[in-house]
């Protein structure tokens, strides 16, 4: 009996230890499983957090860029809009009061200047409005149907007066019958700015818009015979961190707002663009709009 109990207690003990070991192993795996799950979860959280941080950082960069642009805009408004307006007022007021005593050549010179400045102010203000209008990224855009040849003609007609003054000929070589289904306004704004740039940097010669359908999309070219750009200037314009450079309407060096707007608008319609230019030999800007 004693022997028996001893035997049983030994087998019992062995059995007990075996069960215990099995439990330990079992719990070990269970624990490992859960820990692994937690670790994976942690990793996911970490990744999410990093992504959020990156997003916030990118948003910050954009905000800061917009901030810079806004500051620049205020500076353009005060330097290139307010002070010319003030002198339009001073000069015209003076002509009204002292008109009879002002020599006719002088009067004519001032009138021409006032008319010219008023036009430039109109163009600049239009552009500032364009830019501000499309700053809201969440803005809903609607595609429209339009004829590219007609659009080129419309834009040329805006600048006809300025072109005539400088002996510049406009050529609309866009294939007729190219009907696009696209965001019309951004494309119009891009063409507007490209023509404005071409005019500002061309003394005489021609400015041509050409384009048409290709298999993969629409190709649009704006070509001038002006002073052209250096490689450095092109790089500056294309650069991501491009800030509007020194503001100036009058001596027609541009305030850099143009290319900023062009880039923003092309991004909206998913288009790409390339500038080809040689100093003194004109500039050609090619835009590709994927179908």
């Amino acid at each position: 009996m004693f022997k028996y109990t001893e035997q049983t207690s030994i087998t019992d003990l062995v059995f007990f230890i075996a069960v215990l070991a099995a439990f330990i192993v079992f719990f070990y795996f269970i624990a490992r499983f859960f820990i692994k799950k937690v670790v994976i979860k942690q990793k996911i959280f970490k990744a999410l957090l990093e992504r959020r941080a990156l997003e916030i950082h990118q948003k910050n960069v954009i905000l800061e860029k917009n901030n810079l642009i806004q500051t620049r805009l205020i500076s353009i408004i005060s330097h290139d809009i307010i002070s010319p307006l003030r002198f339009i007022y001073l000069a015209s007021n003076n002509l009204l009061k002292e008109g009879d005593r002002t020599p006719p050549e002088m009067r004519e010179e001032i009138m021409a200047e006032i008319s010219h400045t008023a036009k430039e102010l109109e163009l600049l203000s239009t552009n500032i409005t364009n830019w501000i209008k499309y700053q809201n990224e969440n803005r809903r855009l609607i595609k429209e149907q339009f004829d590219l040849h007609q659009m080129a003609g419309q834009i040329f007609s805006i600048f006809q007066g300025l072109a005539r003054q400088k002996n510049i000929v406009f050529r609309n070589e866009v294939n007729t019958g190219v009907v696009l289904y696209q965001y019309m306004e951004p494309i119009k704004i891009v063409l507007y700015n490209l023509i404005l740039n071409a005019l500002n940097f061309t003394e005489e010669g021609s400015i041509t818009i050409s384009g048409g359908n290709t298999k993969k999309g629409i190709l649009l070219k704006v070509k001038d015979e002006g002073e052209g750009m250096t490689e450095e200037q092109i790089e500056n314009v294309m650069g991501e961190l491009y800030i509007v450079s020194s503001a100036n309407v009058d001596n027609r060096k541009g305030n850099g707002l143009g290319y900023l707007i062009i880039k923003d608008m092309l991004k909206l319609v998913n288009a790409k663009f390339v500038i080809k230019s040689k100093k003194g030999q004109g500039t050609q800007v090619t835009i590709f709009l994927p179908a």
């Binding site: 290139d80 002070s83 010319p84 002198f87 339009i88 001073l90 000069a91 003076n94 002509l95 002002t102 002088m106 010179e109 001032i110 200047e113 006032i114 010219h116 400045t117 100036n248 309407v249 009058d250 001596n251």
Partner: peptide
Amino acid sequence: DHSMIRKGLKL
């Protein structure tokens, strides 16, 4: 740098 300002002042 603005011709309007030059002309206005000249006047």
